[in-house]
Amino acid sequence: MKTIYKTVIGVIVMTIVGITAVACSSTKKGYTDVPDTATAAAEEEFKIEKSGAQMWGEACNRCHIAPSPADYNDTDWETISLHMRIRANLTENESKKIEEFLKSAN
């Protein structure tokens, strides 16, 4: 039963630290509001042809933090893309698009 207390205390401490840290940091409003209809329209567009950049943001964050395009050169990105396609079981399309984006943006 002691663990329950420890858990509760742990969670409370983490929550307080977390909320304080975030609250103190975001005094200014970081992002402008986008009307819902605009987001919906943008999403619709993405569905037709999702960009490599978006796929990178989504797929490469799933296991580890996604590396930035500038972290590696084109040659390295080719090796990494093949490695990740296999290790992470990505589809060929995903890995091709992401590779193109990474090589174009570094």
Partner: peptide, 8 residues
């Protein structure tokens, strides 16, 4: 949880 949108 990572507060990636924080300004700090």
């Amino acid at each position: 949880y990572r507060p990636t949108m924080a300004s700090s």
